[in-house]
C-alpha cells in the first residue's frame, strides 16, 4: 500500500465485532453473550436479537458480569462479556484478575469505546489505560483490531483461542484498510507498508494515520515501514526485532496512555533485543469532549504529527 486510498469505506470496529459475534452465535453453541446495560452500544444486541436464550443482561453491574462470565466458563461456555473499556478494565479489574485471569478461563472481555475517538462523551468514557491494565495480567491476550473487517475476524478467532482475551474496540467510524481475505492470526503483526528508514508501529485506527504519515514521508523521500500490531499480547517479537534491525528507529502510535500501552510493549521488546531509538506517541493526560478529529488534532495524533516525529527520530538515529 504505497498510497492511502482516500475513498476507503468507513465503519466502526464495534460493528465488525458485532458481526463476528453474530456469526459465532450461529456456528458455536458454546458462545454466550453477557452485557452490562450497553447492549446496543457494544453491538451485543445483534446477538441478543437472534439468540435471546444465550444472552444475559446484568444491568449496570460490571463486577458481577465479569465474575459471572467466569462461572459460565467454568461450566463449559465461551462467554463474551461486553461493556465499555473503562468499565471492563477499571471498574471490574479485580474481578478480571481473580475470577478470570488467575483461573486462566475462557472468558472474552470486550471493551468498546477505546481511546479519544469516543469523542463527545468526554474523559470518563474514553478508555485510555485499559491496554496497560489488561496486559499486565499473566494469562490475558490483548487485541486491538485496526478496522471493522479485522474486528470481525478477531471476534471469531478469540472464540477459538484458549484462555482469556481482552478486545479493545472503537466507537467511531474509521477507514477499512484491510481486506476480507487478508490473513488474521492472533499474536502475529502485519507489515502494512514497506519501508527501510524507520518503522511506525500502530494499533487500532491509528494504523490508518500511520499509513497516511508514510505517504507524507514518501513525498520527502523518507521510506517508513508501517506495522499493524493488532495483538499487543502475546506480542510478535520477531516482527519488531526485524524492524529495529532493518530500520534502526521506531515510532509507536496509539490513542491510549503512553505509559505501558503499545509504546511499552514495543519498548520492552526492542530494548531487550535490539535497542534503537523509540518515540512513543499517545496520551499523557485525560481526554475531553470534542469530535474525534478535533481530539486527534489537539493531542497530536494526526498523520502530520507522526510525520513530524519521524523526521525528529531520524536525526536521533543518525547521531548513533
Amino acid at each position: 500500500m504505497d498510497k492511502v486510498d482516500k475513498d476507503l469505506k468507513v465503519d466502526a470496529t464495534r460493528n465488525g465485532f458485532g458481526k463476528g459475534l453474530l456469526e459465532l452465535g450461529r456456528t458455536n453453541k458454546r458462545v454466550v453473550t453477557l452485557s452490562a446495560d450497553l447492549t446496543d452500544s457494544t453491538r451485543a444486541g445483534w446477538f441478543k436479537k437472534e439468540f435471546p436464550e444465550r444472552f444475559f443482561s446484568f444491568g449496570v453491574a460490571e463486577q458481577d458480569m465479569i465474575s459471572s462470565a467466569a462461572g459460565f466458563a467454568l461450566s463449559g461456555k465461551i462467554p463474551f462479556a461486553c461493556t465499555f473499556g473503562v468499565f471492563a478494565a477499571g471498574r471490574a479489574w479485580d474481578q478480571v484478575r481473580v475470577s478470570v485471569d488467575y483461573m486462566n478461563l475462557n472468558v472474552k472481555i470486550v471493551g468498546t469505546h477505546g481511546g479519544i475517538s469516543v469523542g463527545e462523551d468526554g474523559h470518563t468514557h474514553q478508555a485510555l489505560e485499559e491496554i496497560t491494565l489488561m496486559r499486565v495480567l499473566p494469562n490475558m491476550t490483548v487485541i486491538v483490531p485496526c478496522d471493522s473487517i479485522e474486528a470481525k475476524k478477531a471476534a471469531i478467532k478469540s472464540a477459538e483461542w484458549n484462555g482469556p482475551v481482552y478486545m479493545r474496540l472503537g466507537r467511531s467510524n474509521s477507514p477499512m484498510i484491510t481486506k476480507e481475505d487478508d490473513e488474521f492470526q492472533i499474536g502475529k503483526g502485519v507489515v502494512v507498508g514497506k519501508g527501510e528508514d524507520l518503522t511506525i508501529v500502530a494499533c487500532g485506527q491509528m494504523v490508518y494515520e500511520a499509513l497516511k504519515a508514510r505517504a507524507i514521508l514518501a513525498e520527502e523521500k523518507i521510506s517508513a515501514r508501517v506495522i499493524n500490531l493488532h495483538t499487543l499480547k502475546p506480542v510478535d517479537e520477531k516482527i519488531l526485532i526485524k524492524a529495529a534491525n532493518e530500520t534502526g528507529a521506531i515510532i509507536t502510535v496509539e490513542e491510549h496512555s503512553v505509559y505501558g500501552g503499545l509504546g511499552g510493549v514495543v519498548s520492552e521488546v526492542v530494548s531487550q533485543n535490539s535497542p534503537v531509538p523509540v518515540k512513543i506517541m499517545g496520551m499523557s493526560c485525560c481526554g475531553q469532549s470534542g469530535t474525534p478529529e478535533e481530539l486527534f488534532s489537539c493531542f497530536n495524533l494526526l498523520a502530520k504529527d507522526v510525520a513530524k516525529c519521524a523526521k525528529a527520530i531520524l536525526k536521533k538515529k543518525k547521531k548513533r
Binding site: 462470565a69 467454568l74 479485580d94 475470577s99
Partner: peptide, 21 residues
C-alpha cells in the same frame, strides 16, 4: 470449583455456573 479469596466474587461465579447449567 473456583479460585476465591478476593471477597465478594463467589456468588457471581456461582450464578454464572447456574445460568450455564
Amino acid at each position: 470449583e473456583a479460585s476465591t479469596g478476593s471477597l465478594g466474587q463467589g456468588l457471581s461465579i456461582a450464578n454464572g455456573m447456574a445460568l450455564a447449567m
